[in-house]
């Protein structure tokens, strides 16, 4: 009964990294701006749709993979396309922040929720207007799997999953480097810890907030792009359950904590995937039960640092 367990665990790791990429953006935005962005899931869906267009166009320019070398080229093109798709989210995120979110920072939290909910609804229809009402699949999953990876070690496991894990690790590494080592990253952290102090020493919080919101949108979009090039499709309501699951992930990990988001995502991913085949009636409940337990036992999350990026 349990002989497939290692595979399930591997699937969980892959699923966890997808969750991490989405949750990372949410936790950064919340950690710095203090805004729980309900439209985050729609930015993720937006990234998936943009990736459909860009990756679809780019892969149209190169041949379908026939051997290992062409497969590598194909894979590189898909990844570049996904990055480009996520990059489109930078100006989108910046615009949303500057035009809509900025005027209401001093309003009550609940108005920020209402605003981001309104943005969620509007973004849904923007996507419906641009890409239509039906799901879209860019259809590069097969080509990606033509790249030999695990086969080299005699295991039959989709290359796409390996790519997602690798990309997720790079994203995590980059974020840690950014917030730990770069000047901008440190300024962002300083702003998160104490807005007034940051302003007093000459930091333009407006700029920082825009940057952070744009970054959040970028990573949401990148997560969407990674899903879009996988076995799934881009569809209008795809943002809903990842948004809710992202809440779970960042709460388990500790709000604002990047390490926490990674650990939380992997915990949710692996537990869900391992439990599903044996107790499929628990599939939906697992993440929330985890969340309740963590919140009741350790309310600040596993790596909790309130309002700081760590």
């Amino acid at each position: 009964m349990f002989e497939s367990l290692p595979y399930h665990a591997l699937n969980g790791v892959y699923y966890g990294f997808i969750l991490f990429m989405i949750a990372a953006g949410l936790t950064i935005v919340f950690g710095v701006l203090g805004v729980l962005n309900l439209a985050h899931g729609e930015l993720y869906a937006f990234g998936a749709f943009v990736a459909f267009s860009i990756v679809g166009y780019l892969t149209g320019l190169v041949a379908e993979p026939t051997g290992p070398v062409t497969a590598l080229i194909f894979g590189a093109v898909v990844l570049v396309g996904s990055l480009a798709a996520a990059a489109v989210l930078l100006p989108v995120g910046a615009t949303l922040e500057a035009a809509f979110v900025r005027p209401i920072y001093d309003r009550d939290d609940v108005y920020q929720l209402l605003l981001t909910y309104a943005l969620l609804l509007i973004l849904t229809d923007v996507m419906k207007f641009v890409w239509g009402a039906k799901p879209l699949d860019v259809g590069v999953y097969d080509g990606l799997n033509a790249i030999p990876t695990t086969e080299l070690f005699g295991i039959d496991y989709p290359t796409y999953n390996v790519v997602v894990v690798a990309v997720g690790l790079v994203v995590f590494g980059w974020l840690v480097w950014f917030f730990d080592r770069t000047k901008t990253g440190r300024i962002v952290r300083a702003t998160a810890i104490d807005r007034e102090m940051a302003t007093a020493i000459g930091v333009s919080t407006d700029r920082i907030f825009t940057l952070v919101f744009a970054m959040g949108a970028f990573f949401a979009g990148f997560g969407g792009a990674m899903v879009s090039i996988g076995p799934g499709s881009a569809y209008l309501e795809m943002g809903l359950s990842p948004l809710v699951l992202s809440f779970v992930v960042i709460v388990i990990g500790g709000l604002g904590s990047l390490r926490g988001a990674l650990v939380g995502a992997l915990l949710v991913g692996v537990t869900t995937q391992v439990v599903t085949p044996y107790y499929s009636e628990l599939e939906l409940a697992v993440p929330f039960v985890l969340m309740v337990v963590v919140l009741l036992v350790r309310p600040e999350g596993l790596y909790g640092t309130w309002g700081e990026i760590e």
Binding site: V251, L284, A285, F288, M291, V292, L295, P299
Partner: peptide, 20 residues
Amino acid sequence: IYFALLTLAFNQVLFAFVVQ
């Protein structure tokens, strides 16, 4: 936010329970 998300979690546990 902890109160908000905890109530959300209980809500979803209940939802998952009924759905399954």
